[in-house]
Amino acid sequence: MPLLSQEIATQVREYLADLTSPVRLVMFTQEFECEFCAETRQLVEEVAQLSDQVSAEIYNFVTDRQKADELGIDKIPAIAVLGAQDYGVRFYGIPAGYEFSSLIQAIRTVSAGWPELLSPEGVRRVSQITSPVHIQVFVTPTCPYCPQAVVLAHQMAVASPMVRADMVEATEFPHLALKYQVMGVPRTVINEKIHIEGAAPESMVLAKLEEALAGSKA
C-alpha cells in the first residue's frame, strides 16, 4: 500500500520533472525503537520513484555507524538530502503532513545547488558567514506555517557551506522538544541559543543569524 496517493505522486512527478542534477536521499533507519522509521523509509523510496534524478540510499543507524558519523546524523529517522555536494540539508522525523512540501522543495533546491527562494540580499549576507551555524527548525506535521521556516533554513544551508539546517519533528523527539522548550511550532533554534517563534520573514532570520554569530565571537 503506497503512502503517496496517485494524485500527489502525479503532482510531485510534474514538479520534479525539470531537475537537471542528481539528488540522493540518504536515509538512516533501524528496525526497532523507532516509531516512524519504516514509514520514512517507504516515503523516501516512493519519492525516488518519481524522478530519474532522485535516488534513495538506506543505511542502518547502528551497523552503518561510520556513514552516519560522516554525515553528522545523530538520531533517526533521518534523511540527508545530498546533491553535487553535501549542503547540510537534513530531515529528522518523518516529513509528513505539511512537511512533505519541504522535502520536495529541498530536493529541487539541492538539485539546482542554488537557493532560488532566497533574496539576492539574503544570498549575499549568508554567503559572507565565516563560522559554523546550525539551524534547527522544530515542527509538527499538522502545522501549515512550519514549511516556510524549514524551507528558509534549508535555503540558507544551500547558500553557505558554513550553514547546516535540520527539520526536527517535535513529537518524535520529545526529549529535544523538552530540551529546547518547544511549546509551539515552528520554533527555530540557531546555534543552541537563539530562538525564533513562528514563521519569521527572511530579513528577521538573517538578523537573528548574525546575532548568533556576533554572540559567539564575543
Binding site: S5, I8, Q11, A96, G97, Y98, F100, S101, Q105
Partner: peptide, 9 residues
C-alpha cells in the same frame, strides 16, 4: 497524511 503544495504558482 501527505500534503503537497507545489512551490510558487
Amino acid at each position: 497524511m501527505f500534503q503537497f503544495s507545489p512551490g510558487a504558482k
